[in-house]
Amino acid sequence: MIIRYRDLWKAFDHPILAGVDFGVNEGEMFGVFGPSGTGKSVLLKTTIGLIDLDRGDVEVDGESVYGGGPRALQRIRYKVGYVFQNSALFDSLNVYENVEMGMA
C-alpha cells in the first residue's frame, strides 16, 4: 500500500474527519467525492502534513507523515506531487522563480 490513512480525526468548529481509515495501492486511481465542506481537501492535505490532526497518522511509502519528524516530512513532500484547488501559483514571483521554487 503506497498511502495509508490511519484513524484520522480532525475537528474545526465541528467534526470534519471522524475515524477515516483506508489505503491506496500503488498504481491505483482513487477518487474522493462529497458535498462542499465535508473534508475532502482536509483529508488530502493530511497526505503531506499540511494540517495538524487531532488524532491518527498517514503513511506514505512506508514513512509516517505525522510521527517521522521534519526530515521524514520533507522527504515525503519531495515525493508527492500536489495540485492545489486554486492552482497556487506564486503570483508575486515571475515564471522562472515559480519553476525554480520546485527545483531545490
Binding site: 499540511l50 520533507q74 513532500r77 508527492v80 497556487a88 501559483l89 506564486f90 531545490a104
Partner: peptide, 20 residues
C-alpha cells in the same frame, strides 16, 4: 494583504508542499 492573499489562495501551503 500580500501574505493574507497568499494564505487564502493556498500559496503558503504550496511552499510547504515544495519543502520550502
Amino acid at each position: 494583504a500580500e501574505l493574507g492573499t497568499m494564505k487564502v489562495s493556498e500559496q503558503l501551503d504550496a511552499f510547504h508542499a515544495l519543502g520550502r
